[in-house]
Amino acid sequence: MSNFVQLEINERNRWVYFNNYRWVAHIVYWVWVLFISTIMRAKGPITPSLIYNHFFLSNLLIATFFYLYCLYFIPYFFKRNKNLQFWVLVIICYLSISALDVVFGKAYIHLTDPIDKDINLSFSKIYYSKLTSYLLNFLFFSIMLFFMEKNEENSILLEVENEKKEIEQVKLDLLKNNINPDFLMRSLHQLKESAKIPEETTPEAILTFSDLLRYRLYRGRQLYSPLKEELSALQSFVHFIGLDHLHHRLHIKLAIQGEENEKCIAPLSIVNLLEPFCKIVHDQAVLLEIIILIESDELHMDMQYESVATATLLADLEEYQSNYSQLYGDAIKLQYESLEAEKSFSVHLTLPLVEQQVLQNT
């Protein structure tokens, strides 16, 4: 099962949970009304007729008012900032349904246990009593609804925050799995061929490449990595290219300026930019100069490639820019330029840096 399918299932389960939670709260409320207003007040036996008249019919219209309020007025008017229409409809329903409840009670409700003292009162007095009862119940119901909505809102915010992190992790995993797998396979093949030749550098090349794979596996799944480790992986990469002189005719000069302590960077963002240059099969020795400048909140990387850029290299650079822009937005800037007259190709990369203390506090 893919991670995106799992996120969709989590979303559906969350809404099912909240809908079930909401209905359970309503059921608890009406059970409480049944117990307090009917069972506790009954003098004689609890019969179906008593439940039907004293609970079901007596609360039918007030329940109609409440559910018009919470299922129609709130979502379609209040939450859409139609405040005037919302309050006009609430007041109209409050006054009209209360009056209708008086007429309905006299015509259809047969209270027998105990018989209400107000049964023979005038319409105006019963209506006033209904208005008071509706208002008190409305306030209680509104408070209960407010806390239910607040609890649901907090839970949703927490779930959304967790799902954002999961989505970022999924995107990051897909990105890492998509960047130059052919280079990894070719490097493993070259190591296999090198192992057949008894050279002193072969064991060191195998150990260096294993360090690179270990860094990719453990740090590649994270959103940020310590800059010190990223630069160390880059240096190991450069060293690995230098050791494998039988297959790589790319000579790399690396210079790093600035302090790298207490800073974090997008993992593999530097290493992955070097990989497209190593994929190219060189017929003769080619120089690649890399200068890295570390500032307080940015890292600048200049690459001078002493050869003409191939169509594959340009496509890889475009894919690199697209992938990392999806993860880190416009903070990552990649510019490249071909100098046909000099038969060279230059790349300038700007990456955002984050303080480790800032990440620990988030």
Rank of each mutant, 00 (worst) to 15 (best):
S2L: 01
R14W: 12
F18L: 14
F18E: 08
A25R: 01
V31Y: 04
V31A: 15
V31L: 15
L34K: 03
F35S: 05
I36R: 09
I36D: 09
A42D: 05
A42I: 05
A42Q: 01
L50Y: 02
L50M: 00
L61W: 09
L61E: 04
T64Y: 00
F66Y: 12
Y69W: 13
L71V: 00
F73T: 11
F73K: 10
F73C: 10
I74V: 15
Y76T: 07
N81M: 05
K82C: 07
L84R: 14
F86D: 12
F86Q: 11
L89H: 12
Y94M: 11
L95R: 13
L95C: 15
D101W: 01
D101M: 03
D101P: 05
G105Y: 13
H110S: 09
L111T: 08
I115L: 13
K117R: 07
S122E: 00
S129W: 06
Y134V: 02
Y134L: 06
L139I: 15
F141P: 03
S142M: 09
S142E: 10
M148A: 09
N151E: 11
N151S: 15
E152D: 14
L157M: 13
N162F: 06
Q169V: 04
K171L: 03
K176G: 04
D182V: 03
S187L: 01
S187P: 00
S187C: 06
L188D: 01
Q190A: 06
E193W: 00
E199Q: 09
E200K: 14
T201H: 05
P203C: 01
T208A: 08
T208S: 10
R214Q: 07
R214L: 00
S225N: 07
K228Y: 12
E229K: 11
L231S: 10
L231A: 10
S232Y: 04
S232F: 02
S232G: 00
A233Y: 00
Q235K: 13
S236Q: 07
V238S: 07
G242Q: 01
L243R: 08
L243K: 07
L246H: 07
H248R: 11
R249K: 15
R249I: 08
R249V: 09
A255F: 03
K263V: 08
K263T: 12
C264Y: 11
I270A: 12
I270F: 06
F277M: 02
C278T: 08
C278H: 01
Q284G: 10
L288Y: 07
E289Q: 04
I291C: 03
I291S: 05
E295R: 13
S296H: 12
S296P: 07
E306Y: 15
S307L: 10
V308I: 08
A311P: 00
A311M: 06
L314Y: 04
L314W: 01
A315I: 08
E318G: 06
E318Y: 08
Q321K: 15
Q326I: 11
Q326M: 11
Q326H: 10
L327F: 08
D330R: 14
Q335H: 14
Y336T: 05
S338R: 05
L339Y: 11
S344T: 14
H348I: 06
L349H: 03
P352Y: 10
V354I: 13
Q357R: 12
L359Y: 00
